[in-house]
Computed example of a mutant assay.
Amino acid sequence: MPGPKDLDPSSSPRALLGAELRHARERRGLSQAELGEPLFVSGSFIGQLEAGTRRLHREYAVQIDEILGTGGFFARNCAALAVSRYPDHFAEAAEAEAVATGIREYTQLLIPGLLQTRTYAEAVFRAYKPTAADAEIGDLVAARLERAHLLDDPTTPLLWAVLDEAVLRRAVGGRAVMAEALRHVTGLARRHRIIVQVLPFGAGAHASMTGALKLLEFGDAPPLSFVEGPDMGKLLDDPATVARHVLTFSLLQAAALSPQESLALVESVTQDYEHGDQHA
């Protein structure tokens, strides 16, 4: 019987590879946990690979081919999954984000990438890479704006953002850029496409003082969390860690202003920027 054909990179390679993995595993009569054991990963990790919420890396693919007797199929097709428009530390998170049914995100210093305008994103990337060529900055901005097309669907994913008040007060790109960026955020919220809360300075100490946090939920796979720093990021699937991050986000929501109060504050700050009244 002929083996599976190589995947077409123009399709959705990660979803197709996940479906092939599930088929090959079940054909061998293995559970997700049984396949994960020789790889030293959990059964839930295998489930995430099969659901397309995690990328299959070559070191796992080679072992899977050996265990399932798939003749190098998974190792060959890892190349289709390795191509990404995003930095290495964020590529897997961006891929998971694209198939998430729910995204909850707390940011300390900047508007979340999915909610950024072109001019705001340009200012952010130029600050990150002050000597980069314009073409490189343009490519980064284009990739970020392409991610935002996730919000073209009227209902999915559910995006709930908690913004530290510092996000509003830091004049990224200047007053005009900030006014446009904040109008974009409030426009999405007023159209009931996203939920936004602001964590005010007056809240004092809170549950995520050490950094930003992103939670990803899926219809057919366990949730993930993502944490990042300068030029690094990690997608986490350990159930205890993710549960702790879910609690952290819940505490942030509780400490933040209500969505209605938050919109009023964002719109007030927007007017300050528009009229030149925003001060450091």
Results as ranks from 00 to 15, higher is better:
residue 18 G to M: 03
residue 138 G to M: 03
residue 102 G to P: 07
residue 237 D to L: 05
residue 261 E to Q: 14
residue 271 Q to N: 14
residue 243 A to I: 09
residue 1 M to P: 12
residue 109 L to N: 14
residue 2 P to W: 11
residue 198 V to R: 01
residue 100 A to K: 04
residue 184 H to L: 03
residue 177 V to W: 05
residue 64 I to F: 02
residue 10 S to Q: 15
residue 142 A to Y: 08
residue 141 V to T: 02
residue 51 A to F: 01
residue 154 P to W: 10
residue 40 F to C: 14
residue 126 R to Y: 08
residue 96 A to N: 06
residue 194 I to E: 02
residue 158 L to R: 03
residue 207 A to C: 09
residue 183 R to Q: 12
residue 99 V to Y: 03
residue 266 V to S: 00
residue 54 R to V: 01
residue 44 S to N: 13
residue 134 D to L: 13
residue 196 V to N: 03
residue 76 R to D: 09
residue 133 A to G: 10
residue 256 A to N: 05
residue 133 A to Q: 11
residue 258 S to T: 14
residue 17 L to S: 00
residue 107 T to E: 10
residue 238 D to M: 07
residue 53 T to R: 04
residue 159 L to G: 01
residue 261 E to W: 10
residue 87 P to N: 12
residue 74 F to M: 09
residue 228 E to T: 08
residue 40 F to G: 14
residue 176 A to V: 15
residue 268 S to Q: 15
residue 246 V to G: 02
residue 32 Q to N: 12
residue 9 P to L: 11
residue 59 E to Y: 14
residue 98 A to H: 06
residue 228 E to Q: 11
residue 271 Q to D: 15
residue 58 R to F: 11
residue 67 I to E: 07
residue 82 A to H: 13
residue 207 A to R: 03
residue 78 C to N: 01
residue 237 D to N: 09
residue 235 L to S: 02
residue 197 Q to M: 05
residue 141 V to A: 09
residue 77 N to V: 09
residue 82 A to Y: 08
residue 74 F to S: 02
residue 145 L to E: 06
residue 62 V to E: 11
residue 168 L to G: 04
residue 116 Q to Y: 05
residue 168 L to F: 07
residue 266 V to H: 03
residue 214 K to A: 04
residue 269 V to S: 07
